[in-house]
Nucleic acid binder design. Structure first.
Length: 874
RNA sequence: GGCCCCUUGGCGAAACUGGUAAACGCAGUCGACUUAAAAUCGACCGCCUCUGGCUUGCGGGUUCGAGUCCCGCAGGGGCCA
């Protein structure tokens, strides 16, 4: 006996158990069907899943279940991005251990994800903090080292003197450490780097091949890599200079503006600056002042421009008698280009500001079209557009592009001290990836420092280098450094007492290759097997836009490095990328300014007059803007509570239905209730269709109108839903499913006499019933299984495949064409869909309204767009 | 400051390559059922001077035809500075 209302709680638990028992979603690497790899960005085990996860994984699951139904061997794994600072912070606060905290969170979150009914192959679950994972990461590090993709060099870092740790730029807020609040110092530390710049050219160029990535993400990566073509130019120091050097080398992307040069600017830590500082205490003080400003590029740009004359002068490359002053400037970066620039104030805003500051003069050398070269002046705004060269001797009249070429050509031919004065160079903004972190909860870098042998790799047979478990977090700094014994080891090469590297790897390393590990997660002797080449690239990767640059770029680098070291055959890990929008919610604030959670308030009134009150004391609460769900603003909704109250299917359906997937979705109680109502509506419709289709046998040779109508509705909607899912337009797929159920309900309601139910109609309802269940199964899998079983099927709908749409049935016999007169719609014409244009024109002109509009005039022309529109032009 | 994106009813939105603007839903109004409520069902639901006219942030352009393409402006967002 079937219950009136669908009980999601019972049904969801039942089907999740069934899928687990039958291992429905376990994927066999040797399955002969075509492969499809769906991956959602794996979560950080922060404690509990949030609505953003629900949205991300609901989308991925629709794709996975849909592709499985379409006959693909689908890989859809899940794991944990499990290393990182929050575990250490929690350990400090709770006097616990990061591993305990992390694994407890994983257990909780695994349970939560399972309650969503995701079609995941849990047998492939990995956690990056597990030695069985990071062992292979250490192996990759050693192979990269051998291949020359790892370096160790001094680098400036943000140093927190209280926490005794290095901070990332985004952890420095207003010059202070985000945790300690201490003033951050710039320190030079020896750090490990992965040489991502070796692949800069390819990482930039190959973006063009990623045609299933959002254009926005490709653009962001392109800008980040920052490829530019320019010229290295060596300026000779004027003969009477006191410097030890004889030339200053600059990098410029605008060699065409060389005749507009007014100064040379050096980075404060340029060797020539330092040498000048050594001789002149005033210069030394200025360099020290620049250092205190911070390293972030944004900080440099917004800071007031400052410079100091070194007293040095260089000769213009094309005129030895023309001397140019050399400044040390706070806006020049040592690690971009050569750490020195020449300034052309007329055509670069920064240079112009500096020239005004120092009174260096401005000479325009590029004149825009339509301006008179004799009078063209630059005042407060530099001109960086196109035009023709002026005031530039032999370059006059050339375009900037031609002038750049000419300057390069001439300077390449001039030799100074055995080297060309000018050399063309491609430059990148991209820097090598510093992976050293002075933290405990990360992957140990498998290196031993020996006083005799130097930095020595840990032999592969000794991997993994595991983290010691007995660590304490009661004092600042790196617990690995404090550990009494861990770092003391024998040198693997000479056997003498040596010291382990105590830096661990940036957690971005962990997530740069997990997609490859999922393809064969159990192998113990290598990071990857041939399975990786079978499965990769990932066909559809889904995650947040916040990873548009770093994670995706690092992963692209890793695939290339793994290819170079024989661990992978592909260089692009993600063929298709989709970036989903956030889950946002209204915010609520009490009169004292503190935030209130949605569970602590009640809302009165509708639309305009909505007001909120605290549940506890009825005090008014102001309704604030809709913002990203966050703990700090307390506008979060707990997925557990939603799933408990409404069921996973309702939560999934609402997440997918309300907004396009790449836009933000507003979580609202009304919206969820609408989805819950729809679940019950389907339940009733399925019950009615089951009754009407009882005893259905099959279609006759000539299906009569009412039954044919049902078939047309179902097949045409199936085609559209398919198309929408393929293009990840889940919101419109859902709209079409709802439309189809509306049409089926209307059809059932129109039956007044049981005699109308012919065998053909019975068969049509039977077909509609099965197809409907199969169509919503990817979104609401539990409800689908319950309905499928309830309508007499023995197997799982998850195994049932995808229904086949009959395009002929879906096609329309007659169509309604709008008829316009002079572009304004005046009438509609119902006509056979295959009617020839001549007939369409004749019938359109015969329409009363059209005849009235024409008022006896003959149409100039009649435009007929097949199956679209008729436009009569008078 | 530069580059990119967005702007459609009260709200979320739909409209694939230029071709009936507002599908599907949320909220709302009215009605049916009910002692009542919930649930459910039915009707309505952009604006106006309403047999017609207008409407996709604002102004212009291209076109037989513009939400869609082009130019300018305004507002919002993102990335890089």
């Amino acid at each position: 006996m079937r219950s009136e209302r669908y009980n999601s709680r019972e049904a969801e638990a039942k089907w999740q158990k069934k899928w687990a028992e039958l291992e429905t979603f376990r994927t066999d690497n040797n399955d002969p069907r075509p492969k499809y790899y769906v991956l959602e960005m794996f979560p950080y085990p922060s404690g509990r899943i949030h609505m953003g996860h629900v949205r991300n994984y609901a989308m991925g699951d629709v794709v996975a279940r849909y592709k499985r139904a379409r006959g693909f061997n689908v890989l859809h794994p899940m794991g944990w991005d499990a290393f990182g600072m929050p575990a250490e912070n929690a350990a400090m606060q709770n006097k616990s251990h990061p591993a305990k905290w992390t694994y407890e969170n994983i257990a909780t979150m695994r349970g939560q994800l399972k309650s969503m009914g995701l079609s995941l192959d849990w047998s492939r679950e990995i956690a990056t903090c597990d030695p069985s994972y990071y062992k292979h990461q250490q192996r990759l590090f050693l192979d990269f080292l051998q291949a020359g993709l790892v370096t160790r060099k001094k680098s400036k870092v943000n140093w927190d003197p209280v926490d005794l740790t290095v901070l990332a730029n985004e952890q420095v807020i207003d010059g202070r450490g985000w945790r300690s609040g201490a003033l951050i110092e710039q320190r030079e530390l020896t750090q490990w780097f992965l040489k991502i710049t070796d692949f800069a050219e390819d990482l930039s160029a190959s973006l063009a091949t990623l045609d299933r990535w959002p254009e926005k993400v490709r653009l962001m990566q392109r800008n980040w890599i920052g490829r530019s073509e320019g010229l290295r130019v060596r300026f000779k120091l004027a003969p009477n200079n006191t410097a030890d050097a004889t030339t200053i080398e600059v990098y410029t992307t605008r060699p065409d503006t060389l005749f507009g040069a007014k100064f040379i600017a050096l980075a404060p830590d340029h060797p020539i600056s330092l040498a000048a500082g050594a001789k002149d205490p005033e210069i030394a003080a200025f360099i020290e002042e620049c250092r205190r400003m911070g390293t972030s590029v944004a900080a440099l740009e917004t800071a007031e421009k400052k410079g100091m004359d070194t007293g040095l002068r260089v000769q213009h490359p094309f005129d030895p008698d023309w001397q140019i002053p050399v400044y040390i400037a706070n806006f020049v970066l040592m690690d971009y280009g050569t750490g020195a620039i020449f300034g052309c104030p007329a055509h670069d805003q920064r240079d112009l500001d500096f020239a005004h500051l120092k009174g260096l003069g401005v000479t325009p050398v590029v004149c825009p079209a339509g301006q008179d070269p004799a009078t063209f002046q630059i005042d407060r705004t530099a001109y960086d557009g196109d035009g023709l060269l002026i005031n530039s001797r032999f370059l006059d009249g050339l375009t900037p592009e031609a002038a750049q070429d000419e300057v390069a050509r001439r300077l390449e031919a001039v030799m100074i001290d055995g080297a060309a004065q000018g050399a063309r160079q491609v430059n990148f903004k991209l820097r090598d990836w510093g992976i050293s972190r002075q933290r405990y909860w990360g992957c140990p870098i498998p290196i031993i420092h020996c006083e005799v042998c130097g930095t020595t790799p840990v032999p592969i047979k000794d991997l993994p280098v595991t983290l010691p478990e007995d660590v304490t977090f009661d004092r600042p700094g790196n617990p690995l450094e404090h550990h009494p014994t861990w770092k003391h080891v024998a040198c693997p090469s000479c056997g003498k007492a040596a010291r382990r590297e105590t830096d661990t790897m940036d957690t971005f390393v962990d997530s740069s290759w997990y997609y490859a590990r999922f393809t064969d997660p159990a192998i113990t002797d290598a990071p990857t097997s041939a399975a990786a080449n079978h499965w990769l690239p990932v066909d559809q990767y889904i995650g947040g836009i916040e990873h548009a640059i770093l994670h995706l770029l690092y992963s692209r680098f890793f695939a290339r490095a793994m290819q170079m070291t024989g661990h992978l055959a592909v260089k692009e890990p993600f063929a298709g990328l989709f970036t989903q929008g956030m889950v946002v919610h209204e915010t609520y604030r009490a009169s004292d300014g503190s935030w209130r959670s949605p569970g602590e308030i009640r809302i009165e009134g509708t639309t305009e007059g909505r007001r909120a009150f605290a549940l506890t004391d009825g005090a008014p609460v102001s309704i604030g803007p809709i913002e990203k769900m966050s703990k700090s603003k307390r506008n979060t909704v707990d997925p557990d509570e939603i799933i408990g109250a409404y069921g996973a299917d309702t939560a999934r359906w609402f997440m997918l239905s309300d907004s396009p997937p790449d836009r933000d979705v507003i979580w609202s109680e009304e919206g969820v209730q609408g989805a819950a109502r729809y679940v019950q509506q389907i339940w009733r419709l399925v019950s009615e269709l089951t009754e009407l289709s009882a005893g259905a046998t099959g279609f006759s040779d000539d299906v009569p109108a009412p039954a044919l109508e049902i078939r047309k509705i179902v097949h045409s909607h199936l085609l559209r839903v398919q198309d929408h899912i393929e293009r990840l337009r889940f919101n419109t797929a859902i709209a079409d499913i709802r439309k189809m159920t509306n049409a089926l309900s209307a059809s059932i309601a129109s039956i007044t006499d049981p005699a109308e139910i012919t065998p053909d109609l019975r068969a049509a309802y039977a077909e509609a019933l099965d197809m409907l269940i199969q169509m919503f199964a990817p979104m609401m899998p539990h409800l689908a299984e319950e309905c499928w079983a309830d309508t007499g099927h023995t197997g799982l709908v998850a195994e049932a495949g995808w229904p086949v749409a009959d395009a002929q049935l879906a096609a329309q016999d007659t169509i309604t064409l709008p008829v316009q007169v002079n572009g304004k719609k005046r009438a509609e014409l119902v006509i056979d869909s295959d009617a020839p244009n001549g007939q369409i024109e004749a019938e359109a002109l015969k329409l009363d309204v059209v005849a009235r509009e024409l008022n006896g005039r003959t149409p100039k022309k009649v435009i007929i767009v097949p199956k679209r529109i008729v436009n009569v032009v008078v």
